[in-house]
Amino acid sequence: MFKGSIVALITPIKKNGSICKKDLTKLINYHIKNKTSAIVSVGTTGESSMLSKKEHCNLIMMTLEISDGRIPIIAGTGSNDTSESINLTKKLENSGISGCLTVTPYYNRPTQEGLYQHFKSISESTHLPQILYNVPSRTGCDLLPETIARLSNFKNIIGIKEATGDLSRVNKISSLVNNKKFIILSGDDITFLDFIQLGGHGVISVTANIAAKKMSKICSLALNNNFIKARKINKKLMYLHKALFIESNPIPVKWAAFKLGLINNNILRLPLTKLSKKFELIVEKAICKAGII
């Protein structure tokens, strides 16, 4: 469940600003049909930082309810406040989620020791599997391989989403971690296939929101060492991988999902705004090149 193409799911929102259960159902069914390995609920792409604490929990529970055991659900439980992350994680124990994706604390820029103590405290507070999430471009701190190796000694810290785009991290992490079952996932669609070829286990993907079938197929081929076919499919998606970050994620992917009819409203929470008109044609061309219309 923690390998292959895992989608960082967008959060569909109604015009009145509330979460749209109808569209969420459509999205979840789309991923089940197209063999996505798992869903990350309320990650970065799910606009986690714009949801209230109550909405955050409610959205995860709604996702669990709709999925009804048909696909594993990984809950985004990160915070820059250790106690808040622990409280959210504890609320989800015995809920039915398959694990937690916990981002490094953002804004306050902790040291490596601070990062270690943060994740250690969370790990010791729960029995739920924990996937670390390293994305320095958003958080202002970098969880280094040496610290990841220390954290991998905790039984329920089972893997990491590595979103630096630095392919050398795969070998650095795997060489330092003693646990051979430790899962290393890419968090960068542009480089994810190279990441898998170097020893990674899959990707937590933005592109999978609108190209679920192709992303699932690429990962399946790659994990079975058929990189020739995998690269042939991924070549058609490369322009899309790039276009979906032409403005801050999830602005472009939400526009694309709306364009493809996967959601009924292209609504984002402020301070995010809709895709700039000047970029719409670029994203539309990328969708066409990917062959998903």
Rank of each mutant, 00 (worst) to 15 (best):
V40Y: 01
E113A: 08
K236P: 06
Y239W: 11
N34D: 11
C100Y: 02
S248K: 13
I160N: 01
T89E: 04
G261Y: 09
N34G: 09
A75E: 02
H118R: 04
N16Q: 09
S83C: 07
I10F: 08
I157V: 15
A212F: 00
E280C: 12
N264A: 10
K232E: 13
G17L: 05
R70V: 04
L240P: 01
N156V: 13
L237F: 04
S37M: 06
L143N: 01
L275K: 09
N209F: 04
M215G: 05
E47L: 00
E55I: 06
S48K: 00
S52G: 11
I19D: 00
S37Y: 03
R138K: 09
I157T: 08
M61P: 02
I157K: 05
S79N: 09
N264W: 10
L198H: 07
Q197N: 11
A208L: 04
V40G: 00
A8T: 12
S175E: 07
S5C: 14
S174Q: 14
T207G: 02
L262F: 15
K14S: 11
D81H: 08
I251D: 02
I196P: 00
I74S: 01
A243Y: 02
E247I: 07
T207M: 07
N80K: 13
I32M: 13
K229V: 06
L270M: 11
L92I: 13
P105D: 07
H56I: 07
K15S: 14
I60D: 00
F119M: 12
L115N: 03
T111S: 12
K242Y: 13
E284H: 05
Y239M: 02
N108K: 14
S67I: 06
G69D: 06
G199S: 12
P110V: 07
K277E: 12
T44M: 00
F154K: 10
N171R: 11
K21S: 14
I204R: 01
P110H: 12
K54I: 15
L144N: 08
V203R: 00
I32L: 12
I184W: 01
L24V: 06
E124T: 07
D188I: 04
K91G: 03
S152D: 06
G159S: 13
I32Q: 09
I32K: 09
K54D: 11
K232M: 05
